[in-house]
Nucleic acid binder design. Structure first.
Lengths: 334, 334
DNA sequence: TTGAAAGCGCTAACAG
DNA sequence: CTGTTAGCGCTTTCAA
């Protein structure tokens, strides 16, 4: 592996000149630049980026913490992050945390061993261990796609309240009055926001929020099926179920079919995320589409603003949703 | 940020001793170790891993090249890779290539700038540019989940021939005789392997391979729908369609429904991969389950064998499939 | 068992 | 515009 010294020798210049030719070509003369580039070609020299990064105290990599990579929604957001990062010269290091706070902390530690310059967290927790937080310094951690209580962390989120409200209003508009919910984990601020939208839509119609209609899931297919099963067997059946992601909606529809009922004839079901599958399953799913690509782009932009000292106060970005009406919702039968 | 020198000063030892205490504790005396560890705690010292890695000429990171991260199958494999890598002290750097050879090469270049120690490639191409290949040295690139013509690249693959054959035999066993295929890209060795399994099953029953029954897709939902549309409109309808992944199967079922037909009553449909969705859609999909987790584990193991000089010849690992029969297949109507 | 010293490959003052 | 020089923070001989 040839190094910068070998190149400098062949080109008959100093190592500094080689370095300059490669990083700031405009400050060296035409002539020397040519000599250097020729020598680079001759030796097949590739700068050792580990050395460069070490020297400049930047790793040029972003750690992405994701609770569950096999969730296609996260996968798409990460895909967006990676694209944006690459365009800015950063690489993306993956941290699949399985929702475990301990694992998050462990991985986030990379920030303090200089293995990552910043973190994009896709779940709602602040990932750094207390001992990893230098006092008074803005930690380069930003939150994406979630809601956070802690106001100090920059965020990129969807208008979850609005989205959930719009979805509920869509069902109310079709004539539904018993609208159940399969939510995410109750403790999560994201769940709270979406429940607020749901409640606000109900109250707009003079209906009251009935806790018996709100069940909890964990965003998995199986949890959607289980929650729907509970709703079907508990007292008066809802005529529609709002699910807080597409997976749970698909799980719920499965359970509904297993109970001998049909969607949307007997029960309308809605999702959230608009996975690519949503349009192709039977029935095609009414859902909320999120701008996944933009999540990634904006998250990276926000993070680099911090890293490159452009941080203009803690910023909270809210992105717009889109209601996508398909065939899983219809007017109630009775 | 405190460094090793600060610690050494406080502990009253040399920097070398601090270094040794942290990396090979057993070679320093009980007493000094205590002093050093106390100083480490006092200063809150975290070794700068960028410096350490630079010095030891290892980045301890693995680059994973994936053609499409939003494909849940790849996401799961990567999840497995990350877990295995983490357990061995490596991090995973993500490279979403969108199937573009140029992008692959660009990303793979990281190997030669010391940003990654090795590469796990999830598509069939050899990712390194010719100029990035040092003569005679085993490049630390391994292939996972795909088939490769080039025999020199270590691989972890499924028994694709067997799986495809088993699936076709399942349909033959139900009485199907006109079995169509929606394959992956024709140029891919993976497609070739699965077609071979299909053909071999047909021939086992004395049937001949009919190219008119074999259509090409690109693993996307839409391509599955389009291919199925073609099959439905071209001469005599097949009674079953074997799809080379679950997405295309779901797309195909969608197209079949749109044509006013039903699965499996009119046409049986099978998938490949056994995504978590497969069991929950309507009808639940008959498919091939792959050991995704194991793919990741074995790929990492193989790669580290190379990196750590245990490479025992080019190894090709073949993992077993599992046929999962659900409700999307049934005996043909006539 | 420990310390002194060299140096990984590169960048960045500072002179010239 | 270019060269000299001094490190970045760490590991690793080599002696003691």
């Amino acid at each position: 592996m040839s190094n910068i010294r070998a190149v400098s020798k062949i080109a008959g210049v100093s190592v500094a000149t080689v370095s300059r030719t490669l990083s700031t070509p405009d400050v060296v003369s035409e002539e020397t630049r040519k000599k250097v580039l020729a020598a680079v070609k001759e030796t097949g020299y590739k700068p050792n980026l580990m050395a460069r990064n070490f020297r400049s105290r930047k790793s040029y990599s972003i750690l992405v913490l994701v609770p569950d990579l096999s969730n296609p929604f996260f996968a798409m957001v990460i895909s967006g992050i990676q694209q944006a990062a690459k365009a800015r010269g950063y690489s993306v290091v993956l941290g699949n945390t399985m929702g475990d706070a301990e694992v998050e902390r462990e991985l986030a530690h990379q920030l303090h061993t200089n293995q990552a310059d910043g973190i994009i967290q896709l779940s709602s927790r602040f990932p750094l261990a207390p001992e990893d937080c230098s006092e008074g310094i803005t930690p380069a951690v930003i939150n994406c796609c979630e809601c956070v209580d802690d106001d100090s962390m920059p965020t990129v989120t969807l208008d979850n309240v609005g989205a959930s409200k719009a979805m509920t209003e869509h069902l109310l508009g079709l004539g539904h009055r018993r609208i159940a919910v399969i939510s995410g984990p109750k403790a999560s601020p994201l769940t709270a926001a979406r429940l607020e939208g749901y409640r606000s839509a109900l109250e707009g119609k003079g209906l009251t929020y009935d806790t018996r209609l709100v069940t909890e899931g964990d965003y998995s297919l199986a949890s959607g099926a289980a929650a729907a099963g509970k709703l079907l067997n508990a007292g008066k059946r809802p005529s529609a179920i709002v699910c807080f992601n597409d997976e749970m909606a698909i799980g719920a529809m499965h359970a509904i079919r297993c109970a001998g009922l049909s969607v949307p004839a007997d029960i309308s079901v809605t999702g959230f995320d608009d996975l690519s599958f949503a349009a192709f399953i039977d029935p095609p799913l009414t859902t909320i589409s999120q701008p996944t690509e933009t999540f990634g782009t904006e998250a990276v932009a926000l993070l680099l603003d911090i890293l490159e000292g452009r941080a203009s106060g803690t910023r909270h970005l809210t992105l717009p949703y889109q209601l996508v009406v398909r065939a899983s919702t219809a007017a109630p039968r009775d």
